[in-house]
Computed example of a mutant assay.
Amino acid sequence: MRILVADDHKLVRDGLRPFLRELDAQAEIVDASSLDEAIAAIEGAAPCPDLVLLDLMMPGMDGLEGLSRIKSLLPDRPVVIVSGYSSRDHVQAAVQAGAAGFIPKTVGGSAMVNALRLVLSGETYLPSSSFFEPSDSAGAGSHPVGAPPPFDRLSRREGEILAQLIEGRTNKEIAQILSLQEITIKVHLRNVYRKIGAANRAQAVRIALQSGWDIPPVAPVVRSVG
């Protein structure tokens, strides 16, 4: 797999590398810090990138014009916007312009990997409402109250566990974070799968990412030393 990461911040590009290796340990990751560099990387190399991660604010982008230029070169390859700003209008406009997904830079690493896997499977990834900026033109108070079906059937604890699952955490890690027994996590997950119509962990993550469900805040993993 060949992945092009186009972002003008080297810290961001370097920070994405370990997570992209989870998609393919042998992936060739190509950097670009401007639109011109991204285009040169596409035109001057073979094979073409299998996946492009694109920052809308880097030099030369001129908003969605840059995305359109990239898509004209790679009409059949997924281009995913990775941005520090994610108003609902920006997300919708990017998808309408051909983006296969829109990932806020505030998303966790494991959740980003799950989102990219969804994109590589041929789906479109949109962030949940929890990642939209309050400057959203619809107004911060216009978000619907309550979770969308079937997530409105989840208990608070089930929602917390599903959020941890999306972050890629194991049952043991989730149990440690929530101060529960591992068997309790398994029971809750069975209920989650039944309520949202998932057959397994991967399908539960896929359904949650596609739904626009407002993912609850995820606590960090606390690991003991020694």
Rank of each mutant, 00 (worst) to 15 (best):
S130F: 03
F131E: 11
D152I: 03
G141D: 12
P148K: 12
S142Q: 08
G139I: 09
S142Y: 01
A138G: 13
R153E: 12
L126T: 05
L126M: 14
D152L: 01
F132D: 06
P150I: 07
D152T: 04
R153K: 15
V145T: 07
A140G: 03
F132E: 06
S135E: 15
P144E: 14
P144S: 12
D136E: 05
P150K: 08
S142F: 03
L126D: 00
S135P: 00
L154R: 03
F151E: 00
H143R: 14
D136I: 07
A138R: 11
A140T: 05
D136P: 02
G141N: 11
P148I: 07
L126C: 06
P150S: 10
L126A: 06
A140L: 10
L154K: 06
P144R: 15
G146H: 08
L154Y: 03
G141Q: 07
A140N: 05
D136A: 13
P127A: 13
P134E: 10
P134L: 09
Y125A: 09
R156E: 08
Y125H: 15
R153C: 04
D136K: 07
G146C: 07
D152R: 04
E133C: 14
P127M: 11
G139W: 02
S128Y: 00
S142I: 01
R153F: 01
R156Q: 08
H143E: 11
S137K: 13
S129L: 13
G146Q: 12
G141A: 05
D152G: 05
V145G: 00
L154C: 01
S128T: 10
D152C: 02
E133I: 09
R153I: 00
S137P: 14
G146S: 06
P149W: 07
P149K: 14
P149L: 12
V145H: 02
Y125G: 02
H143V: 03
P127V: 14
F132W: 06
L154F: 04
S135M: 09
F132L: 14
S155A: 09
G139S: 13
D152K: 04
G146E: 05
S130Q: 15
Y125N: 09
S155H: 00
Y125E: 05
P149S: 15
P150G: 11
S155Q: 08
G146L: 04
R156A: 07
S128N: 08
G139K: 12
F132K: 08
A138Q: 08
S135V: 12
L126K: 07
A147S: 15
F151T: 00
R157A: 05
R156L: 12
R153Q: 14
L126G: 03
S155W: 01
L154G: 01
